[in-house]
């Protein structure tokens, strides 16, 4: 009897996977496949609607437009991989940006030092988030909801709500907005910096123990702790590194916008979360990757640029992004149910 049941079981194990199951397995192994497919699809559709979308000019503009959100999405990805969320992304960036610009323009601080102080402040702000999450044990949502208001208020109080134009800033602060040509493309220093950050953090995430522990802590914190992962130290490091990245984003934003304004990036929080989610990283932690977030930011940017080139009302973008987010999270839920 046992031999017949084991034969049936073996038969069951050998069964052919349906095409749908195969797709599920593929997406489970390579979470960036679906955003890549989506990006190619948006590229094709918008290029048909308006061939100018495919031109080097438009594509260069696309990269410049998404640079800041793509940069913030790096930090956001790290936090979301630990099953957290960072609502203070925009606030930290604005604080760092206003401090950099004000120190240089009003207080005569050397440009490089102003940048350094701004970035250091962003690191400190990220570390504060991390300490509140790990030491006080508050949920990341609450912590960053609080620091969102706190950092925004400090930035507004400090800058007096005024904006600082780039003609008052030293060259090194405006350096991220410098453009140069790569073949037919116009590239800014900021875009290159973002791509470099993706490469560095991507390496750390996939090739080092630190990265592996981030996934472990996000997927199953209790098991990670029992396995000997220093969970709290990992969490603290994630929020701190995220702060560092927001500091760079602040510098890149000044170069991109040509000014430092306290209300310069009003949608940074939701845009960065949207990019991460569309990029295939799970809001429940432990699953996803960095490349997806870059693709996600590019998808959102493509909708903005593509719809305006197609002469369509921008409200359609909002609708499309909303649908994409819901589809992306549904796909994530489905992939999680994968069986051997």
């Amino acid at each position: 009897m046992s031999s017949s049941t084991s034969a049936a079981a073996a038969e069951f194990a050998r069964r052919r996977q349906s095409p749908v199951q195969r797709i599920q397995h593929l997406l489970h192994g390579y979470p960036w496949l679906s955003p890549l497919f989506l990006l190619v699809l948006t590229f094709v559709v918008f290029s048909i609607l308006n061939p100018r979308f495919a031109s080097p000019n438009a594509q260069s503009l696309l990269f410049q437009q998404v640079a800041v959100v793509a940069c913030l999405a790096i930090g956001q990805t790290l936090v979301i991989l630990t099953a957290g969320i960072d609502l203070s992304v925009g606030a930290i960036t604005i604080l760092a940006m206003m401090v950099m610009a004000t120190l240089a323009a009003e207080n005569g601080v050397a440009g490089w030092l102003a940048i350094l102080i701004g970035i250091a402040l962003a690191v400190g702000a990220g570390a504060l988030n991390g300490l509140l999450v790990t030491r006080v044990g508050l949920p990341p949502f609450i912590v960053t909801l609080g620091t969102l208001s706190i950092f925004t208020a400090i930035a507004l109080l400090y800058s007096g709500g005024s904006s600082i134009q780039n003609n008052r800033l030293p060259d090194i602060i405006n350096f991220t907005g410098e453009t140069f040509s790569v073949g037919p493309f116009r590239v800014t220093v900021g875009v290159i910096m973002v791509l470099l950050l993706y490469a560095i953090v991507g390496f750390a995430l996939t090739q080092t123990a630190w990265g592996r522990h981030i996934f472990a802590v996000g997927d199953d914190p209790e098991s990670a702790r029992l396995s000997g992962v220093a969970s709290k130290r990992i969490l603290l490091s994630v929020y701190t590194v995220a702060g560092l990245i927001y500091g760079f984003a602040a510098w890149i934003q000044i170069g991109r916008a040509g000014s430092a304004t306290a209300n310069g990036i009003p949608d940074a929080n939701l845009d960065s979360i949207t990019a991460v989610v569309i990029g295939g990283t799970s809001l429940f932690g432990g699953r996803g990757g960095l490349i997806g977030s870059l693709l996600g930011a590019l998808i959102v940017g493509s909708f903005t640029l593509g719809l305006s080139l197609a002469g369509v009302d921008q409200q359609w973008r909002l609708l499309a992004i909303g649908v994409l987010v819901i589809v992306a999270v549904s796909v994530d839920q489905w992939i999680r149910k994968v069986k051997a």
Binding site: R212, F215, D219, D220, S223, A224, S227, G228, G286
Partner: peptide, 14 residues
């Protein structure tokens, strides 16, 4: 064990 990580990663976790 961490469900999302592979067997080798789990064996050598931490």
């Amino acid at each position: 064990v961490i469900p999302a990580l592979d067997i080798a990663s789990n064996l050598y976790l931490a």
